[in-house]
Design a protein around this nucleic acid. Structure first.
Length: 444
RNA sequence: GCCCCGGUGGUGUAGUGGCCUAUCAUAUGGGUCUGUCACACCCAUGACCUGGGUUCAAAUCCCAGCCGGGGCGCCA
């Protein structure tokens, strides 16, 4: 029972191999592959069936002489994208450009696709993103789309590994909350029995509470919800937030960790996603650490001297970031932000409380992440909440945690889709979101 | 929220008042072909977002609606 015939434990499944494993087999080996009929090229007395699965494509070569008229006709008239399993013999002396083909002995027809398809998987016509998202299951069959998600999966996997290796505990904080957390962003209201509740925009307050709880280092990979009516190619109303928080640590420590996480993730993809990177035409290099640190004030000067007007205390506009992105083309941190541009929980700098120990990680003109050392002093934190015009009463559950021993702590959050979008260079964040939720779309 | 733009076969498009009985590609159905791999070739099928208006004449102009796209803003 325990015998494994390959690393994917296919013994108990219909298939024996993925299509990309066939090349390494000996001539004459019997295999069963399962997948979708991508294409049938029928030449008359011989037909080539291209079968696609998650890992690639394979050619099944069907000879009329071997199968008889009726059987041949039945198979070549199958519609594209029907699902089949093919049991047959490997032939490596093939003229096929794939270098290997299967002479079938048995073809199981599992599901017949209707025709025409709502969109072509390999057609030579481009399809609007709108149509693609409406027919997303079909769009996701396209190899280049799958590759994006394989890269995204690897990024997430590597980030998780790095954090695990560094002793972070995975936690799960509530996504339904009672009060409007940090102010600013609009929240989605939901009915919670007889009460009103909201969907969280970020696990920020809870991961800080976990520092008071003594969990020391935590991470959470979970959805966050924002009810902003933005209509852009880089915002989603639901996205995956990779959040970390670490105790007895400063913003410098948080930045070092972030550099490591990002660098490891890129290295992991380079190692494990060669095919996907080729398909997507990506040519990544492992970035050098440490990433440059540039202060807010330096950049403020820079943009003002280069023709983009900006006042102290403002955030960088798209125009300003575009200019900065021309100077800093890769990863860099923007540090020492004015407190007024940041959330109440940021720790002010000791030498000048006008500034906070906050940072943004940028890639060229695009923002990947924000983070900061947090204010762990109860009184000062409460004051900052008031300064921002928020009501400390609605933060009681949070503030309580600061009264009975709260270590200094720091953290950050990465939007998984945003990171994938920036690294792969896709123009629209929806490309790297399976089923995006935006201003207009709740289906599928 | 503000500004701009669009909606033509299943899919992607051409068409800016009569030349439209609407172009092309792809797709789909049928046919020929024993080594295709963007198969090739032949035949066929299939469309002007909805409603109102202007006009001798509307895919084309105007109004309203519906649906969508892009940019900016917002984005602890």
């Amino acid at each position: 029972m325990k015998k494994i015939i390959n690393k994917f434990h296919f013994k108990w499944m219909m298939r024996t191999h993925y299509t990309n494993q066939l090349k390494d087999l000996e001539n004459g080996t019997y295999v069963t592959i399962c997948g979708w009929i991508q294409e049938i090229r029928n030449i008359g007395n011989i037909a080539f069936i291209i079968v696609r699965d998650r890992e690639g494509i394979a050619q099944v070569t069907l000879l009329k002489n071997d199968h008889g008229d009726e059987e041949f006709q039945k198979i070549v008239s199958l519609s594209r994208e029907s699902t089949i399993c093919v049991k047959g013999k490997i032939n490596k002396n093939t003229k096929s450009k794939l270098g290997v083909e299967i002479y079938p002995e048995k073809i199981d027809i599992l599901s017949i696709a209707e025709a025409p398809l709502p969109m072509g998987v390999v057609d030579k016509v481009s399809v609007d993103i709108e149509t693609r998202l409406n027919e997303r299951f079909m769009d996701l069959r396209r190899p280049e789309v799958l590759s994006l998600f394989k890269v995204e999966s690897s990024l997430g996997k590597s980030i998780r590994r790095t954090l695990e290796e560094d002793g972070f505990l995975e936690v799960h904080t509530p996504k339904i909350i009672a009060t409007a957390t940090e102010g600013g962003t609009n929240l989605f209201k939901v009915k919670y029995f007889e009460k009103d509740a909201y969907l969280v925009q970020s696990p920020q307050l809870y991961k800080q509470i976990m520092m008071a709880a003594g969990f020391d280092r935590v991470y959470e990979i979970a959805p966050a919800f924002r009810a902003e009516e933005h209509n852009t190619t880089r915002h989603l109303n639901e996205f995956i937030s990779i959040d970390i928080e670490m105790s007895f640590a400063t913003h410098e420590d948080a930045m070092s960790l972030l550099e490591k996480v990002i660098t490891n993730a890129i290295e992991f993809v380079i190692k494990n996603n060669k095919d996907d990177m080729n398909r997507l035409n990506l040519n990544w290099k492992i970035p050098e650490r440490p990433f440059p640190r540039v202060t807010y004030s330096e950049l403020l000067d820079y943009v003002n001297k280069n023709g983009v007007e900006m006042k102290f205390g403002e955030d960088f506009s798209s125009e300003a970031l575009e200019l900065i992105g021309k100077k800093y083309k890769e990863f860099y941190f923007i540090t020492r932000w004015p407190m007024e541009t940041r959330a109440f929980y940021v720790m002010p700098c000791e030498d000048d409380p006008t500034f906070g120990k906050a940072f943004d990680l940028q890639y060229g003109e695009r923002e990947i992440t924000s983070g900061a050392q947090r204010n762990h002093n109860y009184n000062s934190l409460k004051e900052n909440i008031e300064k921002k015009g928020l009501d400390p009463k609605s933060f009681e559950f949070y503030l309580e945690a600061f009264k009975y021993g709260m270590p200094p702590h720091a953290g950050w959050a990465i939007g998984l889709e945003r990171l994938t979008m920036i690294l792969t260079g896709v123009k629209n964040i929806r490309e790297v979101t399976l089923f995006p939720r935006d201003r207009k779309r709740v289906v599928p």
